[in-house]
Design a protein around this nucleic acid. Structure first.
Lengths: 199, 199
DNA sequence: GTCTATAACGGGATAGAC
DNA sequence: GTCTATCCCGTTATAGAC
């Protein structure tokens, strides 16, 4: 075949989708290359290994989300409210298509061993630190350790949304509607902000 | 070897531990039988397959937790508060050793495809329904759909605790202390109850 | 009920032609 | 850069002796 420069991209897209649906270990390189309609050996040509592949998949999505988080936090001014901080943290995630990349991120966040060992320092720690600082400032009556714990609670809520959101209609018989992404974000922020203010 | 009736139990214990630490796919039957100090073929003798093994592992732990949840909810009387309901839901989980079974449950809850297909109806739906009803009654000003969503938020917090709790000291540099299990339960209930009452 | 040995399969990775 | 063919390994599961 003649050279195609989009092969690398097609692999990334397929891998992201299939890893998100079926998990890293369960998804074979053959699954990925079949879905992407590329040759099996192309994976090891463009990426070196399956491990490197998933790292590339993750880096492509997390960095823009984190940059947007920082930008939104900056845009909220020098004294942002708890709601503004939480929205800056969550909006970039909710704005991403849940069917695509985000289930994968949820899945990875559910795997502390993998995540902490491989991407904690690079992708999560800096953002977390920045947001804890902002929240501590916005909540002068709360001990910093309590604020930090509650941000972890919030990450738990976010992760669970990423993973279970797409199947909520199925398991609640239509009772819980999450089709309005903007409304869901506001409902989440309302819930979490009240939790942060609890004494 | 002479018959040993504890082989089955040793397999269950090892499987529970290793699945929790390393995940289902990553853990081989050889890992399990080596750790349990039993023969490889014993797994397929006592359980039929790896799939049946994990179902046995799960059933052993989830049922007692759910029974205790129901009992605590009953014991709270006919008009329990939001705090009492949440504590009935969470206490049985927090009381279980986090190093043993619970990381596995957290891991499975992070895998909607697996969980919904195989244990939703049997292990989760009945309990969820009962607790949503109790919460709706305790929160007459909240729409039931909102209460249901917030219970899912709560499950997200719980799951995240199960998974990340054990490594909190490591990633926060000792800032967040969760060694006092009883205190952690109260802190979680306080946070969630405030969220449930938010308008 | 417990063991050894092995079957049957699928996986990641690579060599080498084009 | 792309392809085919293949290597090599670890896995689950089972057959059959004890």
């Amino acid at each position: 075949m003649t050279p195609r420069q989009d092969t690398k991209l097609k692999i990334l897209d397929s891998a992201e989708k299939l890893f998100g649906i079926n998990g890293f270990e369960t998804t074979s390189l053959r699954d990925i290359t079949t879905a992407a309609d590329v040759n099996l050996a192309a994976v090891n040509y463009h990426f070196q290994s399956k491990d490197s592949l998933i790292e590339a998949v993750i880096a492509r999505r997390i960095e823009p989300v984190n940059e947007r988080r920082m930008a939104l936090l900056d845009a909220a001014g020098p004294e942002p409210t708890v709601e503004q901080i939480l929205e800056a943290f969550l909006r970039p995630v909710f704005e991403t298509q849940m069917e695509g990349a985000m289930p994968l991120v949820g899945r990875l966040l559910s795997n502390p061993v993998f995540f902490v060992d491989r991407m904690w320092e690079k992708h999560l720690a800096p953002v977390g630190k920045r947001f804890v600082e902002a929240l501590v400032k916005a909540l002068p009556h709360q001990p910093p350790a309590e604020v930090a714990l509650r941000l972890y609670f919030s990450v738990g809520v976010m992760t669970h949304m990423l993973l279970w959101g797409p199947i909520f209609p199925r398991i609640t018989g239509g009772m819980v509607d999450i089709s309005d992404r903007q409304a869901l974000l506001q409902r989440t922020v309302t819930f979490l902000a009240a939790g942060f203010r609890a004494l």
